[in-house]
Amino acid sequence: MMTILIALAALGCLTLVLAILLIAANKKLHVVEDPRIDTVEAMLPSVNCGACGYPGCRQFAEALVAGKALPGKCSVSTDETRVAIARFLGVALGAEEKRVARLACAGGTNVARNRARYHGVKSCQAASLVSGGGKACFWGCLGYGDCEAVCDFDAITMNAFALPVVDVDKCTACGDCVEVCPKDLFSLHPVSHRLWVNCKNLGQGEAVLEECQVACTACGKCAMDAADNLITMVNNLPVVNYSKNHHTRIPIQRCPTGAIVWLDDQLGAIKGTESKKIVRKGQRRAGIT
């Protein structure tokens, strides 16, 4: 009996002393942090892609809670998540039109020629530092797939001709591929931009075709055909003014090489009726230097 009493008393005293200490410490050393940040962060996809303009999801969550940003900025989340966050914080959604990464090159290995054989680190970034890479077209895609590797969402795959293909559904417009491409071939565009110039070659005339059979020869037919100055030729390339009515397929029809295309969700890039059809499946022969 005595032992039990001693045990009770000892434990009781101990607990009391410690409890008082802890309570005092809790008061003195308490750190305040908005608990909503954690909740919002948990709702975000935590891929830290940076598409929202913040370094990571945590910072974005802080900005959201502080009212400095709107949930719509997060292009990675699903619509439901964005709505849920907006509802949780009691703010507007701030939705934007879905944007995707578009590639401005169609020069796969079947149509574009290599000028030199590149040896070294298998990366576009690295290759571009060695005389611009081995490709004959100085502006074209090098095809080592840096964009495929950098994409956190598996939205980019390299096709049989070493050209990246963007999966519009998976693309979150995070901009990583835009940043990583040494030839600056990617840009972010609203999905509704369907009239697309699929080339960046600044060359002019038939000589360009020696480098790549689907390059823009700067013939200017598209600019002539498009109404209302929708397309202007700048530096030997057509430039579409998307602030005008660009929902027309007329400009692509007379393009001799298919450098200007209509992007279709199902069918992919549709070329004009007069463009050459290239059906080569193998590699285009590396020509003379």
């Binding site: 590149y118 040896h119 070294g120």
Partner: peptide
């Protein structure tokens, strides 16, 4: 007339 090699 040959294709050259390039390396760093």
């Amino acid at each position: 007339n040959k294709t050259l090699n390039i390396a760093a």
